[in-house]
Each structure stands twice: as structure tokens, then as C-alpha cells.
Simulated scan of single mutants.
Amino acid sequence: MIMEVSASIASDVEPHVRWSVGYAPEVDVDGERFILAHLHAVGEDGVVEVEIGASQIGGDLGELDDPEIQRFESSLANSDALDVLYGLARITAAGLAGTIESDIPLPLNQPVAEITPLVRSTETTESEAP
């Protein structure tokens, strides 16, 4: 599911693409693991960003302990699921770039993803503080 998109006109920026993926170390109440992917692409005259959420379902899902994290991240990095998420993000980003008339280079194949666990926010606002 596409969670958020943005496009903006920019100048004097170095073109680059960053593909990052975060995952919940624990499963939710339905036994699914949340995954959030973010594509950030910059061209000479524009910037596009796409966030996509997905759920990992099935298999032996549970909270990931330290020894399992590396194995999970490696498995995720080499999965077809991540290729599909990147493809969706890339198509969406290309459409966004068109809305600002920018020619942002988007690789056909997914770049190496930066994969990290998501961290649950523990911040409270002043009105929530005791």
C-alpha cells in the first residue's frame, strides 16, 4: 500500500537514489510483520519520495532476537517481495517526476537497500505527560 508521496522542484542538487526498508522486529496482533519501504530519488531539477507499507504474513513469524536479525535482513534483501515493492515505488516515483516535469533517473533494478529495524516511538507530547 502506498503510504505517502511527495515531489518538489529543486536546483543545484547532486542526483542520487536511496532505497531504504524498515521492518517491525515484532509481529502485530494478527501475526503479521509490518514493512515500510522508502524511495528517495533526486535529479538535477527535482526530488521525489515514495513510502510503501507492506505486511509479511505466513511462515514462522515471531519477535526477532539478535541472532535472527541478520538472517532475516539478508533474506529480506534477496527476496522477490522487495523487488516488487521497489518496482511499485519506482513506477510511482516516475509518475510523480512527470508532474513536476523532471527527468529523475530511476534504476530499473532496485539499488542495494539499507535495511533496519523500525523503532517504536516512545515520545509523549506535553499534553500527554503526567
Rank of each mutant, 00 (worst) to 15 (best):
H40W: 12
A41Y: 00
A41V: 00
A41P: 04
A41K: 00
V42T: 03
G43P: 06
G43N: 01
G43Y: 07
G43V: 09
E44P: 15
E44Y: 02
D45T: 11
D45H: 05
D45G: 09
V47F: 06
V47A: 04
V47S: 07
V47W: 01
V47D: 01
V47K: 00
V48Y: 04
E49C: 10
E49L: 09
V50W: 02
E51S: 06
E51H: 06
E51N: 01
E51T: 12
I52G: 04
I52N: 00
I52Y: 09
G53K: 11
G53A: 14
A54Q: 08
A54C: 00
A54E: 11
S55D: 13
S55F: 15
Q56L: 14
G58Y: 04
G59D: 02
G59I: 06
D60W: 11
D60Q: 11
D60I: 11
D60H: 13
D60S: 09
L61T: 13
L61I: 05
L61K: 03
G62N: 03
G62H: 07
L64V: 12
D66C: 07
P67C: 10
P67V: 00
E68D: 07
E68Q: 11
E68A: 08
E68I: 13
Q70Y: 14
Q70N: 15
E73F: 09
E73Q: 07
L76E: 05
A77F: 06
A77I: 09
N78I: 07
N78S: 14
N78G: 12
N78V: 09
S79T: 01
D80Q: 08
D80P: 05
A81S: 10
A81I: 15
L82T: 07
D83F: 12
V84N: 14
L85E: 07
Y86K: 09
G87F: 08
G87D: 11
G87S: 12
L88W: 11
A89Q: 01
R90T: 06
R90N: 08
I91L: 11
I91A: 11
I91N: 07
I91E: 14
T92R: 02
A93G: 02
A93H: 08
A93M: 00
